[in-house]
Design a protein around this nucleic acid. Structure first.
Ligand SMILES: [Mn+2]
Ligand SMILES: [Mn+2]
Ligand SMILES: [Zn+2]
Ligand SMILES: [Zn+2]
Lengths: 133, 133
DNA sequence: CACTAAAGGACAATAATTATCCTTTTAGTT
DNA sequence: AACTAAAAGGATAATTATTGTCCTTTAGTG
């Protein structure tokens, strides 16, 4: 039993071929939009329904197996949940990369300033990647 | 000629009553979703079309007169463009507040790590506000 | 292998956003 | 103030994105 099968089962989700393939695409591509995911999936499952993609994406998000990343002026992408990290997106080519940044000082300041109890950060940096400069 | 009239004209946008009212709502409410904005606007302009709201929102965004703020697990809100700042949203009541945070160190680190030329940050902190704790 | 709940697929329904087309208004210009 | 051209508004159709329904198939369990 592979890794994704186990994780899906832990959330009482059946490990269907479609779901395992989705997990694999997410693993390989890293950050992918719904429409790109569908385009890749339909290669392997010629009759997969877009509804299946949506239903599974939503289930996986609810179970924190994957996460949505909202990108300025672009469609959301999805990724397998991993340790907290930030994102950097290229305004030219749209590439989305991970960046590991320590936001603890920022969170401390924001806590003082707002009196919120903060438990999550979503940081997306925008700019131009090496290749596009 | 009031302030918003002038700003709209600078962008070659006609200062219609609808647009001035929208700007005013954004000024008063701070961060507002399309549907809330429409709900407020229709009080003043009983026959305003939702298409007018969308068309104006899009025009104003294109002209950087306003900005979209994407919120995790919720609909986007819009605000008048002002100095760069971050946002903090309450997961209980949905309230969105501004926070002024110095991200320069973060940007430096991210630049080193990614080799991107960074020109914009979108940071949304999530948590629980004072009133909801 | 048999059984049952869950999931997939086709497609209808809904929600969100944009486009079209005609009328009205704005921002000048006489 | 009346005149005009371009822009914007409103009604509504069209498109796009997402969700729901319903029936068939499959995964997981014994
Ligand atoms: Mn990531
Ligand atoms: Mn703000
Ligand atoms: Zn690039
Ligand atoms: Zn709250």
């Amino acid at each position: 039993m592979n890794n994704y099968t186990r994780i899906l089962r832990e959330h009482n989700l059946k490990a269907t071929p479609q779901r395992l393939a989705m997990a694999n695409v997410l693993h390989v591509d890293g950050h992918i939009s719904i429409e790109s995911l569908y385009a890749v999936m339909i290669e392997k499952f010629t009759s997969i329904s877009l509804a299946t993609i949506y239903k599974n994406i939503n289930l996986m998000v609810e179970n924190s197996f994957i996460q949505e990343v909202k990108i300025p002026h672009a469609k959301s992408v999805y990724e397998l949940t991993k340790d907290t990290h930030s994102h950097i997106v290229c305004e030219k080519c749209g590439k989305v990369n991970d960046v590991s940044l320590d936001l603890s000082t920022i969170i401390d300041n924001a806590t003082k300033q707002s009196n919120f109890k903060i438990d999550k950060t979503d940081l997306v940096l925008s700019g131009v990647c090496k290749g596009c400069q």
